[in-house]
Amino acid sequence: MPRKILLDCDPGHDDAVAMVLAHGDPRVEVVGVTTVGGNQTLEKVTRNALAVATAIGMTEAPIAAGCGRPLVRTPELAAQVHGESGLGGVVLPEPVVALDPRHGVQLIIDTIMAADPGEITLVPTGPLTNIALAARLEPRIVERVREVVLMGGGQHIGNVTPVAEFNVHTDPEAAHVVFNEPWPITMVGLDLTHQALATPEVVADLGAVPGPVTDLLLSIIGFYASAYRDVRGFAAPPLHDPCAVAYCIDPSIVAAEPVPLDVELGGHLTTGMTVADFRRPAPEGCHTKVATVLDAGAFWAAVKGALVRLQNPSTTRAGEPR
């Protein structure tokens, strides 16, 4: 049976690739998508989620708009990386997927409470505002979630500040709530995602799969690569968010180890820092893990496999003939 995941995202170029991977790989099933203000405004990222879902044929999972701003802080955007639309440089179809009328936080709660305990994995790839509010509004979801696999943070590096990553830095109070709930958490942070580089060789290999979804993916990576080169100084862009999905697909792709985690809220220079305590041994019952090593070959093979499946309408998501 595929692992059931609920994506909480702010598309965003790498969020869009995460949607492609999640919908195209039969080892996971997307049971819902919620959006959160982050890379761009809530209105823009929600439209992007609906348009990407339309482009890749993700028509069954409900999509709902969540929180448009952090719990406490002034909203931050990442237009310098993702453009004014949130998916700069990408031509998207008009959405034909309808927006679910529920608030995204309510969709998260409804989905978890309607499923069996341990059935739903939450995969947040944006600021953690929706996840924190869901845990506060309906505390029973914490013991029912299988795991929270989040893209955010970093055990040694940041990208907004020297020590803080964008998703956590945008809403550190929400991240503090999420990290301190007792559900199992795996943090897929920058130290891991910087190993998922879309090099020219990787892009050429993906481009060998003909079809419209590949065209979409290449346009996503093309703009993103240019922005990352200009803004961050990377020769090849790291695709952060699909790494969290890859962990759900096959944990052997992303090695993780138990490490106590918390979030700095009050530091003058360190607000939003995810503090990972690598002293050994980790305490018994440690509920947080940190992703450390990516099997890059297996990761890109999974992305390519998703492309192949999404572009062959004569096959099911499991790759079996109809």
Results as ranks from 00 to 15, higher is better:
32 G>D: 08
133 L>E: 14
171 D>V: 03
315 T>W: 05
71 L>D: 02
113 M>F: 00
15 D>K: 04
259 V>Y: 13
87 L>R: 07
157 I>H: 06
37 G>I: 03
35 T>L: 04
20 V>Y: 06
87 L>P: 10
246 A>F: 03
89 G>C: 12
53 A>L: 13
99 L>W: 08
11 P>Q: 05
59 T>S: 15
210 P>W: 08
52 V>K: 04
72 V>G: 10
254 V>G: 09
150 L>Q: 09
197 L>T: 05
228 Y>A: 10
321 P>E: 05
101 P>A: 00
186 T>P: 14
306 A>T: 06
248 C>K: 07
212 P>R: 14
133 L>P: 00
23 H>W: 09
177 V>I: 15
144 R>K: 07
301 A>V: 01
181 E>H: 10
258 P>K: 04
141 I>A: 11
312 N>W: 00
176 H>W: 15
301 A>W: 00
67 C>R: 03
59 T>E: 11
88 G>W: 09
113 M>R: 13
22 A>N: 04
110 D>W: 03
308 V>D: 00
94 E>W: 10
21 L>R: 02
67 C>G: 02
97 V>E: 11
147 E>C: 15
32 G>H: 07
212 P>K: 14
222 G>L: 01
57 G>V: 02
169 H>M: 07
143 E>T: 11
150 L>P: 03
313 P>S: 10
5 I>L: 05
297 G>C: 01
221 I>D: 12
47 R>N: 13
79 A>T: 13
143 E>Q: 15
145 V>R: 06
38 G>I: 04
13 H>R: 04
260 P>S: 04
258 P>G: 08
138 E>Q: 14
14 D>K: 06
191 D>T: 08
70 P>G: 05
120 I>K: 11
4 K>L: 08
317 R>S: 11
75 P>W: 07
181 E>C: 14
220 I>D: 08
77 L>H: 08
154 G>Q: 02
180 N>E: 14
18 A>S: 10
215 D>G: 12
313 P>F: 13
137 L>A: 14
176 H>G: 05
238 P>T: 00
128 L>C: 09
258 P>C: 01
23 H>K: 09
51 A>F: 15
202 V>H: 02
